[in-house]
Amino acid sequence: MSSIFSKIIAGEIPSYKVAEDDRHLAFLDAMPLVEGHTLVIPKQETDLIFDLEADDFKELWAFAHSVANKMKVAYPGKRIAVAVVGLEVPHAHIHLIPISSMSDMNFANPRLTLSKEEYMAIQQHIVGA
């Protein structure tokens, strides 16, 4: 079963990519909790993150680490929080969320509504960090 993330990987659905290699992709969340909320995924379609093979699991976290380091530069003074929830989309993914307080990563909070121009500015802010 093809997930929305698989369609993003295939280029069938547009996204705001902030990092990519041959096995992973990081892009801005379409319904962010805060500015800069980024999703990190393996390109291999796997429903649950703990179903990844050990080496693939380690490589995904290493890729997420490199993305988080760019985000730390882009959002100084904020912590980059990590969440693995896995309920929204049946494709393993890691949320990287710039936060100032715990309430910033409450998934019950209303989501931001951003324009294409705002997404592009955020994308460039992270990519250029």
Rank of each mutant, 00 (worst) to 15 (best):
S2F: 12
F5I: 03
S6P: 01
S6I: 00
I8G: 02
A10S: 13
G11H: 10
G11C: 07
G11S: 08
E12L: 10
P14A: 10
S15E: 03
S15C: 15
Y16V: 07
Y16S: 06
K17I: 12
A19G: 02
A19W: 01
E20T: 02
D21I: 09
D21A: 05
D22M: 06
R23K: 15
R23M: 12
H24F: 13
L25Y: 07
L25I: 06
A26E: 11
D29A: 07
A30H: 11
P32I: 14
L33S: 05
G36M: 07
V40W: 06
V40R: 05
I41G: 06
I41R: 03
K43Q: 06
Q44Y: 01
Q44N: 00
E45K: 08
E45C: 03
T46D: 00
F50V: 08
D51G: 04
L52T: 10
L52C: 08
L52F: 09
L52N: 09
E53P: 05
E53C: 01
A54T: 11
A54M: 07
D55T: 11
D56G: 07
D56S: 10
K58M: 13
K58E: 09
K58H: 12
E59M: 11
L60S: 03
W61I: 10
W61M: 14
F63Y: 03
A64T: 02
N69A: 15
N69E: 15
K70G: 00
M71L: 11
M71F: 03
K72H: 14
K72Y: 02
A74K: 05
P76Y: 09
G77S: 08
G77E: 01
K78A: 08
R79I: 03
I80S: 05
V82H: 04
A83R: 13
V84Y: 02
G86I: 02
L87Q: 11
E88V: 09
E88P: 01
P90K: 12
H93C: 05
I94M: 01
H95L: 10
L96G: 04
L96R: 01
I97P: 10
I97R: 10
P98S: 02
I99M: 08
M102S: 15
D104R: 07
N106D: 15
F107K: 03
N109H: 12
N109D: 14
R111V: 14
T113N: 14
S115Q: 03
K116I: 09
K116Y: 05
K116D: 15
E117A: 15
M120Q: 13
Q124W: 04
H125I: 01
I126V: 13
A129S: 15
